[in-house]
């Protein structure tokens, strides 16, 4: 098959489905499979985020924060709980992780994004994890 729009079809695989010919139940199945693949993906991002947050050579957030499920937490920062109600917008969390000195120039929290301690992708995974707390 020659694909004239490789980028587009890669991003939107659903477009390639010959949807018209699919019986309704098959469609439902496909959607179901998609949905669960999606949440599995989300789950693995959360796991990845937790790993990054706890890893001493990565986020090492436990150095300063009590976080559910983490051993030997420090007390320099506030306990990380109810994050979603406190910071409903994920951009706020991304910003805190990217460079908290923008909000509070005297903070002791390291600028994970600015100083490239974590990549953008890693920060996103950590934020996924934070939103489950």
């Amino acid at each position: 098959m020659t694909d004239h729009f490789p980028m587009k079809s890669a991003r939107l695989p659903a477009l390639r489905l010959p949807a018209l010919k699919l019986p309704a139940f098959a469609l439902a199945l496909t959607i179901g499979a998609f949905a669960s693949a999606g949440s599995a993906q989300a789950q693995s991002a959360v796991d990845e985020g937790r790993k990054l947050a706890f890893d001493r050579s990565k986020g090492n957030c436990l150095t300063c924060h009590v976080i559910k499920g983490g051993d030997l937490p420090g007390t320099i920062g506030p306990e990380l709980v109810d994050i979603k109600s406190k910071y409903p917008k994920r951009e706020e969390l991304v910003a805190i992780l990217h460079d908290e000195t923008e909000r509070n120039p005297l903070t002791v929290m390291p600028p994970f994004g600015r100083n490239r301690i974590l990549t953008e992708k890693e920060i996103n995974a950590v934020v996924d994890f934070l939103q489950t707390l």
Partner: peptide, 12 residues
């Protein structure tokens, strides 16, 4: 560490 956070735990 030693002015802003003395008395706090950094890990253990």
């Amino acid at each position: 560490c030693h002015v802003q956070s003395p008395g706090e735990r950094i890990r253990a």
